[in-house]
C-alpha cells in the first residue's frame, strides 16, 4: 500500500474537493464537533471508503460531499462548482444531475415498483417516458434484477432493495455515487454480492464510488481508504 499525502488522489480529474472544512451540529442539547479543518479530494474512478468509529464524522463528510449539508467553514467543490455559493435550489439540481445516493435503509419509495423507483430520478430530470422505461429496465438488468422490475420494495429482500438503490443511483450517469453504510443491514454473502456489483460498475464503466462505512467487507473491496478520527483524516492509503 502506498501512503499518499492527505488530500491527494491518484490519476484522474477531481470530482469532489473538500477544502479545509469544519462542521459542528447540535444533537438535542449536545453540540457535536463533527469535522475539524478537514481536506480531501476524490478523483474520477475512485472506489474509496471513508472509515472510522462512530462519531468520527464520516457520515457528515459524505453528506457534505453530496451537498446535503453545508460546512460551517471551508468549502466544497462538486463537479467544479463551489457549493457554498449556490442556492438551495441550485444545490438540489446539482445533486440531481451529478450525484447518486445509496443509504443504509429506506432508499426506495414504497409505493413504486423497482423499475418505477429507478425511473423516478429520470422523471425529475425530465427524461421522456419511453427513454425512462428502457433505461430503467436496462440498468436493472445490469444489477441482476431482471424479472423483478414490477415488484414493490416490500416484496423484495434487503439485498434486492439495495441493488435497486444502486441501479437508481447510477442510471443517469452521475459523476459520483455516495453510499452511507449500504451493507450494514445485509448478511455477509449479500453484502459481498452488492460490493462486487458496485466494484464491477467502477471497473467497467468508471463510476466513482465513495462509501462511509465501518464494515470490513467494504474496506476489503476499496481501492482507497481514508481513515477519520475525531473529525480529521488520520490515514489515507491506497490499496488494490
Amino acid at each position: 500500500m502506498t501512503e499518499l499525502p492527505a488530500g491527494r488522489s491518484g490519476a484522474g480529474t477531481p470530482i469532489v474537493e473538500v477544502r479545509d472544512v469544519s462542521k459542528t451540529y447540535a444533537q438535542g442539547k449536545v453540540i457535536v464537533p463533527a469535522l475539524n479543518s478537514l481536506s480531501v479530494t476524490i478523483a474520477e474512478g475512485e472506489f474509496t471508503a471513508l472509515v472510522g468509529p462512530s462519531g468520527s464524522g464520516k457520515t457528515t463528510l459524505l453528506n457534505l460531499m453530496g451537498g446535503l449539508d453545508l460546512p460551517d467553514r471551508g468549502s466544497i467543490l462538486l463537479a467544479g462548482r463551489r457549493l457554498e455559493t449556490l442556492s438551495a435550489a441550485e444545490v438540489t439540481r446539482l445533486r440531481l444531475q451529478h450525484v447518486g445516493f445509496v443509504f443504509q435503509a429506506y432508499n426506495l419509495i414504497p409505493v413504486l415498483s423497482a423499475a418505477e423507483n429507478v425511473e423516478y430520478v429520470m422523471l425529475l430530470q425530465g427524461v421522456s417516458r419511453s427513454e425512462r422505461r428502457s433505461r430503467a429496465r436496462a440498468v436493472l438488468e445490469e444489477v441482476g434484477l431482471t424479472g423483478l422490475e414490477d415488484r414493490r420494495p416490500a416484496e423484495m429482500s434487503g439485498g434486492q432493495q439495495q441493488r435497486v438503490a444502486v441501479a437508481r443511483a447510477i442510471v443517469s450517469g452521475p459523476a459520483i455515487v455516495l453510499a452511507d453504510e449500504p451493507t450494514a443491514n445485509l448478511d455477509s454473502h449479500t453484502a459481498t454480492e452488492l460490493l462486487q456489483l458496485m466494484r464491477g460498475m467502477n471497473v467497467r464503466h468508471g463510476v466513482t464510488f465513495v462509501f462511509a462505512t465501518h464494515d470490513e467487507l467494504v474496506m476489503r473491496h476499496a481501492k482507497r481508504i481514508v481513515r477519520l478520527r475525531d473529525g480529521a483524516v488520520v490515514e489515507d492509503e491506497r490499496c488494490s
Binding site: 423499475a115 425512462r132 422505461r133 428502457s134 429496465r137 436496462a138 450517469g173 468508471g206
Partner: peptide
C-alpha cells in the same frame, strides 16, 4: 467520462411505469 447506459432496443410493455 460520465458513465452512460446505452438505450435499450427491447420492446417496452405498454402499461406500467411511472407517469
Amino acid at each position: 467520462m460520465p458513465y452512460r447506459i446505452a438505450s435499450d432496443s427491447r420492446p417496452i410493455r405498454k402499461d406500467g411505469g411511472l407517469v
